[in-house]
Design a binder for these strands. Sequence first.
DNA 1: CGATCGGTTGATATGAATCAACGTGCGTGG
DNA 2: CCACGCACGTTGATTCATATCAACCGATCG
Lengths: 181, 181
Amino acid sequence: MLCKGWGYRFFVLPNGRRQIFNFLLPGDLFPLTSISEERFSFSVDALTEVHILGFRRAEIKRRLALNSSLRLKWTVGVAREARTADELLVVLGQRTAEERVGYLMLHLTRRMSALGLADKNRYRFPVKQAHIADMLGITSECVCRMLSRFRKRGILDLSNGYLDVLDFVELERIGSPKNWT
Amino acid sequence: MLCKGWGYRFFVLPNGRRQIFNFLLPGDLFPLTSISEERFSFSVDALTEVHILGFRRAEIKRRLALNSSLRLKWTVGVAREARTADELLVVLGQRTAEERVGYLMLHLTRRMSALGLADKNRYRFPVKQAHIADMLGITSECVCRMLSRFRKRGILDLSNGYLDVLDFVELERIGSPKNWT
DNA sequence: CGATCGGTTGATATGAATCAACGTGCGTGG
DNA sequence: CCACGCACGTTGATTCATATCAACCGATCG
């Protein structure tokens, strides 16, 4: 479990390309679903200094077996994770570069706000353009162009390791197809 | 639970575009993860005549709480589903149209074989090119071109509602980046 | 002080989308 | 029983979004 800092979960293809599945924020138990697997089929890396808490698979399983309210939480978490994955699939399958970047920024901003880690929609943003690109299936140059487009339009500003969302409503318009989920 | 026939799980965006998340084959309990949700965030449709078995959420939950071996099966299923979703994310994020189509054909062929529903890599294939396109994030015209490319190369033949994999090894080369999973 | 990393920008290339037309089989209604 | 419409697949021409390639900048660091 990630207690402090940022991380990401990803997979590297033999050809060197990398797909990032999600970013890990404080409180994330990385892949909830993997407690039943001996070996992970993905890698995890840190973007900042992190604090983590390790649990033994057996221990988690034991507690889940005994504690039904914990089990409920776990189930809910698994469902949320599945929904997020579906959302990313929609983004990768159906949306343009601009919308992809908008989606990710919106998604992260919402999560950070929910965690109380954002100060008026401004927060520490240790993610590099290359990471954004590798999550969204576009190149880092393209990410750069989209970000400067957003900056020019006064929607958000990403610089010096901080993201500042200036026009949240507009970001929602771009990044969250009205009737999702 | 789908007992007989083919189905698919998908989401339709406000603009009419559709993202298909996966195809449902006999034995599939559609989204395992959704037992904890009141409302589904996706739709399901049939591709053929189907037989389905309905379960009440409460009933499933009750059984899962009591029966630990059932719970194990469920957990394993959830993990498998998550891995499949990750795989599709990699495909959508990092691969070309040809590889996408190759991946899907390979994936379905493996599943059908495992279910004993394929006869020497030939099986009923009720999926239209439009469905393939909507799952892989490409257009149906593009799917058509890729399929005829495969046909010309003697890798597979999809016609009259049947898929015939003629060169499984080559299909694996195209559709399964050597060191996945 | 040079090297490296991340970001930026411009020119060009390209894979896939789009648009358009046509074919074929099939079901349905006249 | 034929004719029409419709769903699906196919193919070609053109366009367009994004990749690729290349150069450069500023900050940081050893």
